[in-house]
């Protein structure tokens, strides 16, 4: 239906705006562009159509002998294996001037389970507006360009997998966005360090090492002042018999968390042994 097609094109455009690569001067064909199916010569011999009947067509366009292409072959082989059984028609394409045996051998060695076709006359290259190889191109069931992912040395497999799964409606936009822009792998946040110090302080309190426990809880409060930390400090002070200080610490906790039941109940001082 033309109306649905229009909506689908608009959706594709919106997704491209949100998750497509940044502005790139060497522009390939725009997402949503109709891509013409045609027959290419397979390196196995017979001619073969570019597209299959599956829901999605995934085309790996690579250059034999090129370092990045060799890396991409392995990455795409892994994705293909992982997504086996999905409705994806996979083909690899090499430029028309590529020696047959190199392309076929490299594809087999990488574990690609897909026909390798030769782009005679660089027809597909021109149609897609390719400027950089390798690239994985995804074409939807209506033969429109749905995604275009040039090779990247880091996380290429994750990016290709996420694009395909999104187009197959297996993951949400947010999940794809997280795959394309993974969160920073931070370690040792103030919160985590403060929590560790609290754990230590509680153990030191249990062992009767009150001064050491107070030092530890002080470090925790410095990095992340929480009601939990003030309550523990109050407990340590109570164990030392410093009831006024303990009550003051509980009050600090109450200021931070007025609904905190322990803070509202107040400290037991001197603490029970």
């Amino acid at each position: 239906m033309p109306g649905l097609d229009a909506i689908r094109s608009l959706c594709l455009l919106a997704v491209w705006t949100m998750f497509g690569p940044g502005a790139c001067g060497f522009t390939h064909a725009q997402l949503g562009t109709p891509i013409t199916d045609f027959e290419l010569t397979s390196l196995d011999g017979p001619k073969q159509h570019l597209f299959g009947p599956e829901e999605l067509n995934a085309i790996l366009y690579f250059r034999p002998g090129q370092d990045f292409s060799l890396m991409a072959l392995q990455e795409v082989a892994a994705v293909q294996k992982e997504l086996a059984g999905r409705s994806i028609y996979w083909v690899a394409v090499v430029p028309g001037h590529t020696p047959d045996k190199d392309a076929q051998g490299e594809a087999r060695q990488a574990g690609l389970a897909m026909p390798v076709l030769m782009d005679e006359g660089d027809r597909l290259y021109g149609q897609l507006g390719v400027a950089q190889l390798p690239v994985v191109v995804m074409i939807d069931h209506g033969h429109r360009l749905a995604a275009y992912e040039s090779f990247r040395k880091v996380n290429y497999q994750a990016v290709v997998r996420a694009r395909l799964r999104f187009l197959l409606k297996e993951i949400s936009e947010q999940e794809m966005a997280e795959a394309l822009n993974p969160p920073a792998a931070t370690t040792d946040s103030d919160e985590a360090a403060a929590h560790r110090r609290l754990t230590l302080a509680a153990r030191l309190l249990h062992d009767g090492k009150y001064d050491a426990a107070l030092n530890s809880v002080a470090v925790s409060l410095e990095r992340n002042p929480t009601a939990e930390a003030y309550l523990l400090r109050g407990d340590i002070l109570a164990a030392q018999g410093k009831c006024a200080d303990a009550a003051a610490s509980y009050n600090e906790a109450l200021k931070l968390e007025p609904a905190n039941e322990r803070a509202k109940a107040g400290v037991t001082c001197p603490a029970k042994p």
Partner: peptide, 15 residues
Amino acid sequence: NPNHHGPIAGDDCSA
């Protein structure tokens, strides 16, 4: 400069 070279668009300086 809003027109970024392909590897930069792919966040990949290591290319």
